[in-house]
Simulated assay, not measured.
Amino acid sequence: MRRTLLSLGLSLALLAACAAEDNLGQHPSWVVFFTEDGAGMDPAARAVVSEAASLANRNPAAPVLVAGFADPDATRAYNRALSEIRAQNVAAALGEDGVAPACITVALRGGVPFIAFPVESRRVEIKVGP
């Protein structure tokens, strides 16, 4: 499993972004973490998106799934809206890096519980491939 750690801030120093392969080792996925109530990407997060876009551009027929999440602390409607903004921002960044919009599917997950740290739920997952 491959991992790339990037920082979004002091509290996110170890969890800000990672790249990993799925269980079969065939379809890479990337995770961009966000600050609480945040939807903007810093240069480190943008680099993760660019890495995913690079693979997608080398495989133009591959679908790209962008799934947005939020932590469960606010209302369901708020979390759904925040996860959508996060996912749309990542999808737009993929498009800026040359990924065809027709290949990108945005999925909203809303508020989800975290295991150890709230930042685990404040994320967008990018998966390239079926």
Rank of each mutant, 00 (worst) to 15 (best):
M1Q: 08
R3A: 04
T4H: 14
S7G: 08
G9T: 13
G9P: 00
L10M: 10
L10W: 13
L10E: 13
L14E: 12
L15F: 09
L15H: 04
A19N: 09
A20L: 12
A20T: 11
E21L: 14
E21C: 08
L24A: 15
G25C: 08
P28Q: 11
W30D: 03
W30V: 04
V31W: 13
V32S: 09
F33Y: 11
F34E: 04
D37H: 14
G38R: 09
M41A: 07
A44V: 05
A45M: 14
R46G: 01
V48D: 03
E51M: 05
A52T: 05
S54T: 02
S54E: 11
S54C: 07
L55N: 02
L55F: 15
A56K: 07
A56M: 06
N57I: 02
R58A: 10
P60I: 07
P63C: 02
P63H: 01
P63L: 00
V64Q: 02
L65R: 14
V66H: 13
A67P: 02
D71A: 05
P72G: 01
A74M: 01
A74V: 00
Y78F: 00
A81M: 04
L82M: 10
S83A: 14
A87L: 07
A87C: 03
Q88D: 03
N89Q: 08
A92E: 10
A92N: 13
A92Y: 10
A93R: 15
L94M: 11
G95E: 13
E96K: 15
G98L: 10
G98Q: 10
V99N: 05
V99S: 02
V99T: 06
A100F: 02
A100P: 02
P101G: 07
A102N: 01
I104A: 05
V106M: 04
V106P: 07
P113H: 12
F117N: 06
P118E: 11
P118I: 08
V119D: 04
S121G: 04
R122E: 09
R122G: 01
R122V: 02
R122P: 00
R122L: 08
R123I: 02
R123P: 03
R123G: 03
E125S: 12
I126W: 09
K127L: 05
K127N: 09
P130W: 00
